[in-house]
Amino acid sequence: MTLTEQVITIAACAIGTMLTRYLPFLVFSSRKPTPDYIQYLGRALPCAIFAMLVVYCLKDVTITAGSHGLPEAIAIAVTILLHKALHQMLLSIAGGTICYMLLSQYLFTH
């Protein structure tokens, strides 16, 4: 990439990021109430996105071969238990990820 292409790419990324951050504040005024469908999306989308991520992460797990999905199942259980105990999403995700990595690297090696 030339220097000009790099500058254009960085500028496009910065503008795109700023646009997605500032656009809701420009579209939805603080003087008018937020529309009901936007409030619904704010409640429903986070759960839907996490469900989609779980499905995506488990799409290649085969329970009939290898470790039979045990590291994944254990890591999911650890994530759920951490979230129920701590109510901290980032800690739950990090704990489940670390658990999975340790299990897959050291205990369930192929």
Results as ranks from 00 to 15, higher is better:
74 I>A: 06
51 A>I: 08
109 T>Q: 11
61 V>Y: 04
52 M>Q: 14
25 F>V: 07
40 Y>L: 14
70 L>C: 04
18 M>D: 03
62 T>N: 14
60 D>K: 10
47 C>H: 07
31 R>A: 08
70 L>K: 09
88 Q>V: 05
32 K>F: 14
74 I>Q: 01
55 V>L: 15
71 P>Q: 08
44 A>S: 12
77 A>G: 11
36 D>R: 11
75 A>N: 00
99 C>Y: 03
89 M>F: 07
91 L>E: 02
44 A>T: 11
73 A>H: 04
40 Y>D: 15
84 K>P: 06
24 P>E: 00
38 I>W: 10
10 I>S: 05
41 L>K: 02
55 V>T: 11
101 M>G: 05
46 P>F: 01
82 L>A: 05
44 A>C: 07
20 T>R: 10
36 D>E: 07
34 T>Y: 13
87 H>Y: 05
86 L>Q: 09
7 V>N: 09
53 L>T: 09
30 S>G: 09
56 Y>A: 07
15 I>P: 04
98 I>K: 06
21 R>V: 14
25 F>I: 03
20 T>Q: 12
98 I>W: 14
67 S>D: 13
68 H>R: 11
29 S>I: 05
70 L>Y: 11
104 S>F: 12
98 I>H: 06
62 T>W: 09
78 V>H: 02
46 P>N: 01
103 L>A: 03
70 L>A: 10
4 T>M: 12
3 L>N: 09
33 P>M: 03
21 R>G: 08
94 A>S: 09
10 I>L: 13
60 D>M: 11
76 I>K: 01
107 L>S: 07
108 F>D: 02
65 A>S: 12
61 V>N: 01
91 L>R: 03
21 R>S: 11
50 F>E: 05
54 V>L: 15
79 T>V: 08
19 L>F: 13
43 R>Y: 07
57 C>E: 13
11 A>C: 06
90 L>N: 09
42 G>P: 13
95 G>K: 01
57 C>S: 12
48 A>G: 05
50 F>R: 03
104 S>R: 14
6 Q>S: 09
37 Y>H: 10
96 G>R: 02
80 I>V: 12
84 K>I: 11
79 T>N: 10
8 I>M: 14
44 A>P: 09
99 C>N: 02
107 L>T: 07
101 M>C: 12
42 G>Y: 06
9 T>E: 13
33 P>A: 06
48 A>E: 01
32 K>R: 13
69 G>K: 08
9 T>L: 13
2 T>S: 15
29 S>Q: 10
19 L>S: 09
73 A>Q: 02
45 L>E: 06
5 E>M: 05
88 Q>F: 10
77 A>W: 12
27 V>L: 15
37 Y>Q: 07
69 G>R: 05
8 I>E: 11
6 Q>L: 13
19 L>V: 12
105 Q>I: 03
14 A>T: 06
14 A>H: 01
101 M>S: 06
91 L>F: 06
62 T>E: 15
28 F>L: 08
41 L>H: 02
17 T>P: 04
16 G>C: 00
17 T>F: 08
102 L>D: 01
11 A>G: 02
76 I>C: 08
83 H>N: 12
7 V>S: 08
39 Q>M: 14
16 G>T: 00
16 G>Q: 00
105 Q>G: 03
31 R>E: 12
60 D>W: 09
64 T>N: 13
109 T>W: 11
16 G>R: 00
102 L>A: 10
12 A>D: 00
49 I>P: 10
103 L>I: 04
96 G>S: 02
104 S>H: 07
89 M>H: 04
45 L>T: 06
